[in-house]
């Protein structure tokens, strides 16, 4: 394996019971790179992220992170090694306040640049609302809190699952602007996006998944619209 990659998967397969959702995914991302994963509903995008972070079982050698085989490790160990995830649907803890949600992100006490004050600097609205229950936030604010919570773990690799889903364009723009600050500070980023245009705009490289397999991979500038449409819909 090449040591230059932060994360690699080799023939990664994933199952929900007897149902196979991923069929041999070969993926890699270099440090400081931003990679977007696109694909239609049910293509296996979320499944891929869940496998990386340990919520779904994987074979040990199927996933290498920082040069170590991490497949099959429980999620709490993988998070401790420096991968955190912003889950689809935000999944904030409703009985915790906004600030408590951020603090629980730092449960593993990994050292790094992200602290409460650093999060409040990129998302000032969270500071104003820090004592309200997480459920009292608007959708966009909840997404900011969920991203902030994941950053509090000071990850080397941040996984974002459908963060623009259901949000107004202006809010999406704001959130992606802040994510750029996050990647500029040295965090490697994988975003799963249904919005292809958004994905192309932020990513250094794009993977398109279809029916649990990689249908296309490349730099946004190298990919034509026709290629993407074909990969996306399987035409």
């Amino acid at each position: 394996m090449m040591p230059s990659n932060l994360l690699e998967t080799h023939g990664l397969a994933a199952f929900y019971g007897d149902f196979q959702a991923l069929f041999g995914i070969d993926f890699h991302i270099e440090p400081d790179e931003t990679v977007a994963i696109i694909g239609s509903n049910g293509a296996g995008k979320s499944t891929f992220l869940k496998s990386i972070v340990g919520l779904l079982r994987a074979k040990a050698e199927a996933i290498y992170f920082d040069g170590k085989a991490i497949g099959g490790n429980p999620a709490y160990r993988i998070v401790a090694q420096g991968i955190s995830m912003v889950p689809e649907g935000r999944r904030l803890f409703p009985s915790l306040s906004v600030e408590e949600n951020l603090l629980i992100g730092a449960y593993g006490k990994r050292e790094g640049p992200w602290t409460l004050s650093a999060i409040y600097e990129i998302f000032p609205v969270l500071k104003q609302k820090r004592n309200v229950p997480a459920t009292a936030l608007s959708g966009g604010q909840q997404q900011m809190a969920s991203i902030g919570r994941a950053l509090m773990a000071n990850p080397k690799l941040l996984l974002c699952d459908e963060i623009s889903l259901g949000l107004a364009p202006v809010v999406i723009k704001e959130i992606y602007a802040q994510l750029e600050r996050v990647t500029a500070s040295g965090t490697t980023l994988i975003v799963v996006e249904q919005d292809v245009k958004q994905a192309m705009a932020v990513a250094d490289r794009v993977y398109c998944l279809r029916e649990g397999r990689i249908a296309l991979e490349g730099r946004p500038s190298d990919l034509s619209r026709e290629q993407i449409t074909a990969a996306y819909f399987g035409l």
Binding site: A75, S84, M85, P87, R91, F93, S95, I104, A153
Partner: peptide, 24 residues
Amino acid sequence: TGLGRAFRSVSDDQEAAQLMGINN
């Protein structure tokens, strides 16, 4: 306390709690 926060978060959502690095 941090431990209490962890108890409450696990009570809310066991899967999301694992993503926080909590060993349920």
